[in-house]
């Protein structure tokens, strides 16, 4: 009898858990489905209650209209250039720095690392005006230089990537490099031939974090770019914002949102393992 009630209680708990998990999962996905659904409607279907989930017929031509109304191709191109530029920079420079902070000892190392890490407390949002002024002094306003170089050199969030990689390099046992040191290999040689091949999962995490940061960036490009032909996606899609465009074309706005969200979701689905591991490493160790 007690055993039976234990099992009943357990079955109840299992059911409740699943119910909750599925409920939350649906609420997570619903906005995306609604976005795609709205993007395929015409303006009359948009304004119907109760909501119509499946647009009949789906209006794929909405997407053509988006490309007619705005220079979406250009925004994509800019976003891709900026994203890959920053990724390249962070991939090289943050990895090198992380290796040095983890495995090389030189005077001032801990101080420099501490300084770098403390920059995580200083978000770009507190530096909007002086950054604008600096970019103006450099003559970089409205150029790819402004969009790529600072982040490529690890400013504004790169410290996290350095931290992430450093944590990883710290876990590699000393034995791996000892024999190479005795053979007279330089630190660069050790980095290149021994450490890098070992660090693949961490580097993959770095790349995807870097991708996410660059693809979704908003405030920084808002400040340093001005013209339509330099806009990245996150800014470009605001051209559809109801008030400013004068009309409220929700179906086109949702189409533009879908087109900007999609690449990131695809990348995430492919590389989610590294992503989640990266967060866990960054969040927990030490």
């Amino acid at each position: 009898m007690p055993k039976g009630s234990y099992e009943a209680k357990r079955a109840f708990l299992v059911t409740i858990t699943y119910a909750l998990i599925i409920f939350f999962a649906i609420s997570m996905v619903m906005p995306f489905l609604w976005m795609v659904s709205t993007s395929l409607k015409d303006i009359n279907q948009v304004f119907t209650m109760p909501p119509q989930w499946i647009p009949r017929p789906p209006r794929w031509e909405n997407y053509l209209q988006i490309f007619e109304l705005m220079d979406f191709g250009r925004y994509w191109l800019n976003t891709i250039i900026v994203t890959f530029g920053r990724m390249a920079g962070q991939f090289i420079f943050c990895t090198l720095a992380a290796y040095a902070f983890a495995r090389l000892s030189f005077p001032g190392r801990n101080l420099l690392f501490f300084l770098l890490l403390s920059s995580l407390m200083v978000p770009f949002e507190t530096l909007m005006v002086p950054t604008f002024v600096l970019m103006k002094e450099l003559g970089w306003i409205n150029t790819y230089w402004a969009l790529i170089v600072p982040h490529g050199l690890g400013a504004f969030g790169g410290a996290f990537l350095v931290f992430l990689l450093r944590q990883f390099f710290l876990t590699i046992p000393k034995e791996f490099e000892e024999s190479a040191i005795i053979d007279g290999a330089s630190p660069f040689r050790i980095f290149w031939s021994i450490m890098l091949p070992l660090a693949k999962p961490a580097l993959a995490a770095l790349l995807i974090f870097s991708f996410r940061g660059a693809w979704n960036d908003f405030t920084y490009p808002l400040i340093v770019t001005n013209t339509d032909n330099m806009k990245v996606l996150s800014l470009g899609i605001l051209g559809f914002k109801g008030l400013r465009a004068g009309m409220t074309q929700w179906h086109l706005m949702m189409g533009a949102a879908t087109l900007s969200i999609l690449p990131m979701i695809l990348v995430f689905l492919v590389a989610q393992k590294y992503f989640i591991e990266g967060i866990t490493v960054g969040g927990l160790k030490e």
Partner: peptide, 16 residues
């Protein structure tokens, strides 16, 4: 090598 490796990131940090 240590200074060389951290140089780009520290330069970015100080400048930007």
């Amino acid at each position: 090598w240590g200074y060389l490796f951290v140089l780009p990131v520290m330069a970015g940090f100080f400048l930007f």
